[in-house]
């Protein structure tokens, strides 16, 4: 049970029960859908990017506790950061959950370290990164009207 508690820390359980920034209630100018074909989990991530800044970030869809908590934490922590910053965070987060170099996050992102527990569960890494891959796709979107870079 203790190994499971490492995976399912209280922060994860909390975010999965009451995800933050859930639902598409605010204006956005980029979005992407992501799904995990293995389990059928689906998310849509909505982003409002202005002047290269992620002004707003929300998501909807359904997934397991890991993917939902990861999406929720992501929306909380990346709001207000620059697009480049968000991209860089993706890479660092990926390193954390795959366990490369025992990476740990700091500078306000340390909350994400709770997801490091998925390292021991290779099948679950995809859950932890689903929303992040979806965000990455949304940020890459080029067919938008307001180009601010």
């Amino acid at each position: 049970m203790s190994e499971l508690r490492d995976l399912y820390q209280e922060v994860i359980l909390d975010h999965s029960r009451s995800p933050r920034n859930f639902g598409h209630h605010q204006p956005s100018n980029r979005q992407a859908k992501g799904n995990n074909p293995l389990c059928g989990d689906k998310f849509t991530v909505y982003v409002l990017v202005e002047d290269g800044i992620v002004k707003d970030l929300s998501f909807e869809g359904r997934g397991c506790a890991i993917s939902t908590a990861s999406a929720s934490l992501m929306t909380e922590l990346l709001k207000g950061r620059t697009e480049d910053d968000a991209q860089a965070m993706f890479e660092r987060f990926h390193a954390v959950v795959t366990g490369e170099k025992g990476e740990e996050l700091d500078d306000g992102l340390d909350k994400l370290n709770v997801l490091a527990g998925v390292r021991g569960y290779p099948m679950r890494v995809k859950c932890a990164t689903l929303a992040w891959h979806t965000l990455k796709a949304a940020l890459k979107q080029t067919d938008e009207t307001v180009v601010t870079e």
């Binding site: 499971l4 995976l7 399912y8 389990c39 989990d41 359904r62 997934g63 397991c64 506790a65 890991i66 993917s67 939902t68 569960y121 679950r124 859950c127």
Partner: peptide, 9 residues
Amino acid sequence: AHPHDIGTV
């Protein structure tokens, strides 16, 4: 709980 989480437990 989601089936994935149940599966892991």
